[in-house]
Amino acid sequence: MKTLLSTNLIYSIMAKEAFVKEAADDILRLTEWIREVFEDGGKLLIFGNGGSAADAQHLAAEFVNRFLINRRPLPALALTTDTSILTSIANDFSYDLVFVKQIQALGKPEDLALGISTSGNSVNVVKAMETARAIGMKTVAFTGGTTRPGGDLAAVCDLVLNVPSDSTPHIQETHLWLEHVICEIVEKQMFGTT
């Protein structure tokens, strides 16, 4: 079991290192976009399924409350939290539309849609991105994989941050690291280091 621990840690670190090597410029581009959205009165709409839904909620909480700096709340909303909305849309229409209808209701051109999908192929995330694009929102995806980097989301997003790994746990671990580093950079850009 100690070998498993060491091996798992090594592969997790390797996934992060490969991701940063490929995506450093895009990560910084995204932090600029998020800062601009917040400074221009827009909001961040975040969504995904399963572990990615938990990531959406975690990221929204870091922006609304605080990450490392005590500062004013920043407008971020996870579209994964309202069970009445999610279940009514899934029941009355389709699970494929649970994020689409929320984007239609809440999204404005000055906002940014951030979809999280380990495979890049979650139908409800892809459809939501298509809707966000039609509204005029910036669209960003966190994905993973080596065979089809970005999956179906690559064709419908302005920016895709793809973890070059086929291990779902390591992709998700990298997404969490990415979410934290984005929060830290945006806070420092907007509020300094106090």
Rank of each mutant, 00 (worst) to 15 (best):
K101W: 05
D111H: 10
L79T: 11
L86F: 04
T146Q: 08
G48K: 02
E32V: 14
T143Q: 14
L97K: 06
N121A: 10
K43C: 09
T143I: 14
L86V: 08
F93G: 01
A53M: 04
V163C: 07
F142A: 07
Q189E: 11
F47Q: 10
A76Y: 14
L161W: 13
L59K: 01
V181K: 02
I85M: 09
A54R: 03
S52G: 10
Y11P: 01
L86H: 05
S52L: 07
A15M: 09
R72W: 06
A60L: 12
T83W: 07
A76L: 13
F191G: 02
G107E: 07
T118A: 09
A18R: 03
A105N: 01
A18E: 08
L74R: 10
V125E: 07
E39A: 15
I69C: 10
P75D: 00
G192S: 03
F19C: 08
I182S: 00
E173N: 08
G192L: 00
T174M: 12
A78R: 07
F99S: 11
T194V: 12
E39C: 14
R133E: 07
I103W: 10
Q172M: 11
L68R: 04
K138L: 01
N49D: 05
S117K: 05
S52H: 05
V20W: 11
A53L: 09
T118Q: 01
S12C: 15
T194N: 14
T80W: 08
P73Q: 01
G120A: 12
F142S: 07
V163M: 06
F38Q: 02
I89R: 03
I103D: 06
A90Q: 02
D166Y: 07
L45Y: 11
E22H: 12
L5M: 15
H180A: 00
K127P: 15
G151S: 14
T80V: 11
E22Y: 06
S119I: 04
V37P: 05
F93W: 07
S6Y: 11
G192Q: 06
L86S: 05
S6A: 14
T174S: 06
G42K: 04
N91P: 02
T3G: 04
I185M: 03
L106Y: 15
N91H: 00
Q104P: 13
E22K: 13
L86I: 15
G41K: 02
I10L: 12
Q104S: 13
E110D: 05
L59F: 13
A18C: 03
F99D: 09
E17M: 13
L30K: 06
I135Y: 02
G150S: 14
I182A: 02
I13K: 15
G107V: 00
I85V: 09
R133F: 01
L44G: 06
F99H: 11
P149M: 13
L79G: 11
N70T: 08
K43D: 08
G115C: 06
E187S: 06
A141T: 08
A18G: 00
W177K: 03
A90V: 00
W177Y: 15
G144Y: 09
W33A: 12
D40W: 01
